[in-house]
Lab assay of single mutants.
Amino acid sequence: RNRTTFTSYQLEELEKVFQKTHYPDVYAREQLAMRTDLTEARVQVWFQNRRAKWRK
Rank of each mutant, 00 (worst) to 15 (best):
W54Q: 12
T36R: 01
T7C: 05
K20F: 09
H22N: 03
Q19A: 12
L11T: 06
F6I: 12
Q19K: 13
F47Y: 03
A28Y: 13
T39W: 02
Q10A: 05
L38C: 05
Q10I: 03
P24K: 00
K16Q: 06
A41N: 09
R29L: 14
A28L: 14
K20V: 12
V17W: 06
H22Q: 11
V17K: 05
L32V: 11
Q48H: 14
A41H: 11
R35I: 10
F18R: 01
Y27S: 11
V17T: 12
R50L: 00
H22K: 12
Y9Q: 05
Q48R: 11
A41I: 08
E40S: 12
Y23R: 05
Q31K: 12
R1C: 15
K53M: 10
R55P: 08
R3S: 15
A52E: 15
Q31G: 09
E12I: 03
N2Q: 12
P24F: 01
V43M: 06
R3E: 14
E40V: 11
E12A: 11
L32S: 01
R35P: 02
K16S: 08
N2V: 08
R55L: 14
T5N: 14
V17E: 09
H22P: 14
K16M: 08
V26H: 10
W54H: 15
D37E: 11
N49L: 10
R29Y: 04
A52F: 03
F6K: 04
K20A: 08
E40K: 09
K16L: 07
R3F: 15
Q44A: 12
H22G: 04
W46L: 01
K16I: 09
E15Y: 01
Q31M: 09
E40C: 07
E12D: 09
R3Q: 11
K56C: 01
K16E: 05
K56M: 07
K16H: 06
E12F: 01
P24Q: 00
T7F: 06
F18G: 00
L38S: 11
L11W: 05
A28C: 11
E30R: 07
Y23C: 08
T7R: 04
V26M: 09
T36E: 01
Q44M: 11
D25K: 02
L14A: 02
K53Q: 10
R55Q: 09
R50A: 10
